[in-house]
């Protein structure tokens, strides 16, 4: 193979298409995590003991085949890697898009008309801002539930008490609602875009099906995550 072709191929490895494929795969990994996380949270409906057992089992996952917390850390590292690659690709593509669309001070066209485009969804407008909101939320969430550094509602002795004490406070509940809506919108466009970027959009009919699927999964994840906090706030669980 001539050297010039090799150079070109090396450039294509870093192309926008490959960055989008990385975003798609890492995004799907994170959606897989969200589905498992959401389903796990529903253990809170089974009661204090069952939920605490579930939380404890996350740490003993894979034992006795693997030492304590090894599988948990493997999953955490895989997730962290996904987050880093997802954010890196997003920032790289964001910078490119800014130059490519010839924006000056945030605006591209001088007209105030047609700002919403022809058919684009609200979710597609807010991907980048939603991403920032979700990143900030994840830090807050880890400090709250995983690390236990911040504990609204007072210190708690078990995961179950931490959940219930936290969500009995309206502003904690509200902060989670905002974050879950942001995640829902991000997934509504992100899931469709990931599927299409990886080649699943094979016809206009398939485009409609993929969009329906993306909306369904986004709604399931958002509602599934909001069920336990909402029931706790309104006194369904204590």
């Amino acid at each position: 193979m001539p050297a010039s072709t090799l150079t070109k191929h090396r450039a294509t490895v870093r192309s926008t298409v490959v960055l989008k494929a990385i975003m798609a795969i890492t995004g799907l990994v994170m959606i897989g995590f969200l589905l498992a996380h959401m389903a796990g949270n529903l253990w809170v409906f089974a009661g204090r003991e069952e939920f605490n057992d579930y939380a404890h089992h996350l740490r003993t996952l894979g034992e006795p085949m693997l030492p304590h917390k090894v599988l948990l850390w493997a999953l955490r590292i895989g997730l962290l890697l996904s987050v880093v690659l997802h954010v890196y690709s997003a920032i790289t593509l964001w910078k490119r898009a800014h130059v490519a669309s010839a924006r000056k001070g945030g605006t591209r066209y001088h007209t105030s008309k047609g700002q919403r485009g022809v058919q684009r969804s609200y979710a597609s407008f807010t991907m980048r801002y939603g991403g920032i909101v979700i990143t900030l939320f994840v830090i807050y969430h880890l400090l709250h539930f995983t690390g236990n550094q911040i504990h609204p509602g007072g210190a708690s002795s078990s995961p179950y008490d931490r959940v219930v004490n936290g969500f009995e406070i309206w502003w904690v509940w509200l902060s989670y609602v905002i974050a879950m809506v942001a995640i829902g919108l991000h997934l509504r466009h992100g899931l469709w875009a990931a599927a299409a970027s990886l080649g699943a959009n094979t016809s206009p009919r398939r485009r409609r099906q993929l969009n329906t699927g993306a909306i369904t999964i986004a709604v399931v994840i958002t509602v599934g995550f909001l069920l336990p906090p909402t029931l706790i706030l309104f006194g369904g669980i204590s």
């Binding site: 593509l93 898009a97 130059v99 669309s101 022809v118 684009r120 466009h189 469709w192 875009a193 959009n201």
Partner: peptide, 14 residues
Amino acid sequence: HDAEGFGGCSQIGE
């Protein structure tokens, strides 16, 4: 396409 400075596709459909 990329060398010309065009952006990436986000599947927005405009």
